[in-house]
Every structure is written in structure tokens, then in C-alpha cells.
Design a protein around this nucleic acid. Structure first.
Lengths: 218, 218
DNA sequence: ATATCTATTTAGATTAGTCTAAAAATATAT
DNA sequence: ATATATTTTTAGACTAATCTAAATAGATAT
């Protein structure tokens, strides 16, 4: 049996390793889990004992196929619950992450499959992230960060990197949501801020914003 | 902060004390929690420290107002999730108890109020039990057990005592659900079994069944 | 009223997850 | 290449919830 804490560590290793392909250091893991490196080391050893990660002392950990499967299933649950909260219970996209962190640990394959059907088999969550299907398959959108966008081009907003409520509320305040069209007007060399046109209005966004907003060419 | 385990003990004390009005012995509590008496003693002491129960050594424990409020809120969440699972996700009434045991611990007042609204403010769960409103208020139906029913009278099924999937599946197999009309024909003195007429068909139910089916006069 | 039985509590140990502080390995700098 | 700094691991301790086994309180029976 897998514990809630183990599940959270596995999910975090998955995210830190860029979809399970890179080694994750215990320090990075501890940082992401808001805990101490010694705790992360202990947990990584435990996960290695259970064959969810491959772990080499001083080198870091990487998910095994079994660990990857668990991570993807937790992510599937997280994102389906987010769709439920937004589409059915009328939460706004900046409120659902913390709630989904709780709901993602409910154990029942049948529940999640029925929820999937009830929601109409959605392919993306409210932040534009893809939802793995019941076999764990999903396609990553071919997206770029606003910071990498070309001047003069027009893009469509397809996702966010940071899904903190602070960032999402910033986007709300500026009427930017998934599907919003963004024209890139000018990049300031000094502070890497970017002037864009959104909904017919010109505005300037900081580099932090530009690093966290994903776009796709239209 | 209240832990998941504490919440479960409080809920069980509530049920064992008949809506919070009787002392509960540590042995009864341990039995209901599938644990040992020593564990129940430890937990009851801890709950007393936190002022969720009043506890006298060798006498048992009873919920305080604060404990009662927590119990009722957990029950509200449990029953609302059961309605969601049956009404929206098409689970049958015998499948939802274990799932609701998990979902009832999700912490968010806003979530449960929005779920309540989404479900249309239901007053009863799929087993006929009343759902406390957001102030904790609910009315107990004036119900009797089939075992106490009068011969010759016709009743309507309004609830179950045992909501195990075994018992609910027995009812499914015999086409008995909430609202089903039941005419009481004869009580056997020898084994306390009861002959009833349901959906035009006569059948005999054991005393165990008669002790777990709640009826109301029509 | 005393012995016996049962219910309850206490004492001490165990596990999961965490922590601090110290030790060891690796990386960096001169 | 050696010293220094950083990262990672180890050792030992702590808390929550549990257990077993022993001790104690209360109930029951003669």
C-alpha cells in the first residue's frame, strides 16, 4: 500500500524531473516538498526499497516505470478534479489547486473513471495542462513561453507555468485567460519586460509574468 | 488543527452515543473503530485535552458542543458526497459508503457549500439519512424498524440502519429501495422472522433484516 | 464480604514521517 | 593539488497513532 506522503513525493519527483526523464537531487526535492534534505533522503530510500525510484547515493533519484505510472495517475486525478471544481461547482481557476491537492489522493479507480465520463472526457485542465487518459496517455502541447515569443506575432494563451492563486488572479485582473489572443509588440532590453496587446489594449508585463505564461502561434 | 484520525473517532463517538447524548465506553469505541481499547483510551484522552469530549476515567466519553459540531459537519460532508456519487456519477447506493468515508475528510467549507448548491440542497442521502444543513440543523424522520411494525399495516421504506454493501445488495436483489411500499403480513414467534408483501409479492425476511430496515406509516 | 471476572488504564515498544546536528562526499577555487 | 564550500547522508531524537502485556478499577456471584 502506498501512503499519501509517498504519493506526494512521487508526484513532486515527476514534476521536478521534467516528466520523469531527469535525476532529481534530494535538496531540490526537499525544497519542493517544503521539508528538510534529511527527510527527502529518508523518503527516497523508502521509495527505492519499494521500487518506485532508482536512487544512487549523492546522485539523486529518478522514477521507475512503476513510479511514473503512479505519478501520472495522481496528476490525472488532480486535473480531473480541477475541471470538476471549475466546470461544475463554479470555482475560479485560481482557487482549485489546493483543493485538488486534497482530492487527488482519494483512492478509487472507478470513481475517477466515472468522474472523467461525467465531465465529458476533458483533455485539458483549467490551466491548460493536459489530462492523462485512463491508460496514462496524453499529448504535450507545442507551447512557448511569452518570454520567447517573437515581436510582431500574435499568439493564443494555452497555459500557465506557475498556477499559484496570486499569478492567476493577476491574469484575471488583466482579463487574460486560456484562449486569449496576445500580440507581442516590444521587448525591453533593460529589464526583459514585454509590451503586448490584449483585448485591444496595450500593456506591459514583467519578465516574471513572461516566464510563466504559455502561448501557441495562431 | 484536527487530524483525520481524530475526526473519525469524533464521528464514531457521535454515532455510538445516539446523536451525542450518551456516554460511550472506550471498549465500544475501540470495537467500532476496529482498534484496541488501549488505543481508544489514548485517543479519548487526547480529544479531552482538546476539549472535543468530556472524559471521566472508567466512565466513558461524551462529545462537547465543539465535538458535536465537528461530528455533524463530517456527517454533512459524508452524506452530500453520497448524494453526488449516486445522483451525478451513477453509483448504486451500496457502493458509496466507503468512498464517502474518504471524501468526508476533504477540508473546505466553500467546497461543501458549493457541492450542496450543485446538488440542489438535498435533505436526505441515498440511504434515507438526513443531511445537516450548513448550520448543522436537520430533522430526524419519525421512523420505526420493520421489526416493530404492526401486522396488517402498510409502510413506506425510509431508511436503513446497516448501510453495508452486503445488506444494500440484499435489498437490491429483493427490489426494496427508499419509498418502496411494504405491507406487514405475519410475525413468526419462533425466530422473529416477518412475512411481508413487497411489489405485489410475498416474502419472508429474517429478524436481522427486520432490525435494519426503517419504515414510516403511509 | 471475599473471590472472580470483565472492563479499563498504564507502561513500554513500534512505525511513519519529521527534525537537528554532525559526518562524509562532492564540487569549486585558488 | 590542496583548501574551502556546498551538498548529501547518517545518527539520534521527537510526535502521532498504534500495539501487547501487565496492572488496576469496577461489577458480579456466591
Amino acid at each position: 500500500m502506498i501512503t499519501l506522503t509517498e504519493e506526494n513525493y512521487i508526484k513532486t519527483i515527476y514534476h521536478l524531473s521534467k516528466h520523469g526523464k531527469e535525476m532529481v537531487s534530494t535538496n531540490a526535492l526537499a525544497e519542493a516538498m517544503s521539508t528538510k534534505a534529511s527527510s527527502a533522503t529518508d523518503m527516497v530510500k523508502k521509495l527505492a526499497d519499494k521500487s518506485y525510484v532508482d536512487y544512487k547515493k549523492y546522485q539523486g533519484a529518478i522514477l521507475t516505470d512503476a513510479g511514473n505510472k503512479i505519478a501520472i495517475n495522481v496528476i490525472r486525478k488532480h486535473r480531473l478534479w480541477e475541471v470538476f471544481l471549475v466546470d461544475k461547482l463554479c470555482f475560479s481557476w485560481d482557487e482549485v489547486h489546493e483543493l485538488a491537492e486534497q482530492l487527488e489522493h482519494i483512492k478509487s479507480q472507478k470513481l475517477i473513471d466515472k468522474l472523467d465520463a461525467f465531465l465529458g472526457y476533458p483533455t485539458h485542465d483549467p490551466h491548460g495542462d493536459p489530462i492523462p487518459d485512463k491508460h496514462g496517455d496524453f499529448t504535450l502541447v507545442d507551447k512557448i513561453m511569452l518570454a520567447q515569443a517573437q515581436i510582431g506575432e500574435t499568439y493564443s494563451c494555452v497555459g500557465v507555468n506557475d498556477s499559484s492563486s496570486e499569478f492567476l488572479q493577476y491574469l484575471n485582473n488583466n482579463k487574460i485567460e486560456l484562449g486569449t489572443k496576445i500580440e507581442v509588440l516590444y521587448k525591453e532590453v533593460f529589464d526583459s519586460s514585454i509590451k503586448i496587446k490584449v483585448n485591444g489594449l496595450e500593456m506591459t508585463v514583467s519578465n516574471s509574468v513572461a516566464q510563466n505564461l504559455y502561448l501557441q502561434k495562431v
